[in-house]
Structures are given as structure tokens and as C-alpha cells.
Simulated assay, not measured.
Amino acid sequence: MPGQVGAIANEQEGLLAYLAQMRYVVKLTAYGLSPEQLRATPTASPLTVGGLIKHCASTEEGWIDDVRREPRELDYTAYEENFALSEGETIDEVFARYDRVAARTEKTVAEIGDLDRAVPVDHSVPWNPKDLDNWSVRWVLLHLIQETARHAGHADIIRESVDGGTAYPIMAAAEGWPASPWMKPWQPAS
């Protein structure tokens, strides 16, 4: 996938394309990392690259449950576990789940076809406005873009702290870009 979203024909296509781009860049932060590095906490935060990717998949899945008006169990006592790879859980398993979530998001939005469709606001959590009864599908997609981009930034900082890798050199390595005078693809430390 290129470093930029391509041309878009309409709003729905644009929202889904930007969400796909943010999924891609957050997943790229794991490129070339060992299982130990995916779990490393090299900053003041307890966040990890693997845990952030897992959280993004879980968050998107929950929001699409809301869009589909499917019940879900919210267990905020296990919130921290949402940000960490479980014992034995692999990044490939997390990627596979995230890919399934992404396919479900795109299918759901295509089936609905109406970005103005109402999505009930969950008033059980303190961060949602009490004076608003519904979001729209459009709002949910924009929120998912925002949430994924925020966590991609967190993952970028953690990744750089783990091994010095930064976004575009990692993308260059993952996509096989040739080295240039201004961009060298990331390589593992020897």
C-alpha cells in the first residue's frame, strides 16, 4: 500500500480508504520485530506495539458491533488486557483478527450505504456526551480513523524506542522500496 491514500470517488470510499491506511500504518510498526520487542515497554507508558495493534482491532470491532446494533459485553475491568498481547498470542493472530475486523467493517458500511444512519450512543461510559442520543455511521468512521491514527503515533514512538525504526524507512523496507539519497529502508540492527 502506498504511503498516501489514492484518489477517491465519494465520501464513503474516502472514509474507508483513510481507515484502511491508518490500519496499515499501525500494523507496519510491528514489521521486523521479535515477539519480545512486540511486548517491550521502552517508554514511560506500559503500552507496547503488539498491544496497541490488538487494541485497535478490538476498538474497531466494538464500534462496528454498535453500528450493526449487535449486543456486546463491555468488561472495563479487563481494559488493560485489551492493550497487551496474551501469553502465547502472536502478532500473526492479531493481524488475522484485525483483517477479519476490517473486512466486516467494509461489508457493514457497504450494506448500510447510508453514512447518516443513526448509531445509539452508549451512555454507560463517562466520556460519551449525555445530551446526545445517536452518532452517525460517518461519525463512527471518523472516530475510528482518529483512534487508529492516535495509536499509530503511540506505536511509532514505542517502535523508535525499541530499535530506532521510524515510519517511512519501515514502510520502505516492508514494501521493498529502493534506497535513495534521502531514504534508506529500515534494516534490523546487526
Rank of each mutant, 00 (worst) to 15 (best):
T41H: 05
D122K: 08
A118E: 14
A57T: 10
L52A: 03
T90K: 08
V119N: 02
P46Q: 08
D114Q: 11
A110D: 12
I112Y: 07
D131N: 13
P120G: 03
Y98L: 08
R68T: 03
T48Y: 05
P35F: 09
Y98R: 07
K130Q: 15
V49F: 01
T90G: 10
A78K: 14
V121L: 05
E106N: 12
P46A: 04
L52P: 01
G50S: 07
W127L: 03
K130H: 14
D114A: 12
D66L: 12
V101Y: 09
D75C: 06
E61H: 12
G113S: 07
D131C: 03
A40M: 09
V121K: 04
D66P: 00
T41V: 09
A40T: 06
P120L: 00
P71H: 13
W127Y: 13
V137D: 10
A96H: 12
D92E: 15
A78Y: 08
C56S: 04
V140P: 06
D66A: 14
F95V: 14
T77H: 04
K107E: 14
D65V: 07
R68M: 05
A30I: 09
D133L: 02
D131P: 07
V140S: 07
D75L: 05
T41A: 12
P120S: 05
K54R: 08
K54Q: 04
L47Q: 12
T90H: 10
L52K: 02
A118T: 07
E89K: 08
W127C: 01
E73F: 15
E89M: 10
N134P: 04
E89R: 08
E80H: 10
E89A: 10
V49I: 11
D131V: 06
E61R: 12
V125M: 11
W127D: 02
V101Q: 06
K130E: 12
T105Y: 00
V49D: 01
A84K: 14
L132A: 11
R138L: 05
R100E: 13
C56K: 00
L85V: 09
A84S: 08
P42A: 04
V119M: 05
H55A: 01
R138D: 08
Y79C: 14
R104W: 09
F83D: 04
E89D: 11
H123A: 12
I53E: 02
S45N: 07
V49G: 03
T43C: 07
V121R: 03
Y76W: 15
K130S: 14
S136G: 09
S124W: 06
V121E: 05
T41K: 12
N128P: 07
E80I: 00
V67N: 00
T29P: 02
L85W: 06
R69W: 00
A84W: 09
V140R: 07
L38A: 05
T105L: 09
A110S: 12
D65T: 11
E87V: 15
L33G: 01
D92I: 02
L38T: 02
K130A: 15
E61Q: 12
E81H: 06
G62F: 11
V49N: 03
A78H: 10
P46G: 04
D75I: 07
K27M: 13
C56H: 01
A57K: 11
D133G: 11
F95N: 02
I53A: 03
V49P: 03
E106I: 08
T105Q: 05
P42D: 09
T29S: 13
V109Q: 00
D92Y: 10
V49L: 07
A102C: 12
Y31R: 08
E73P: 04
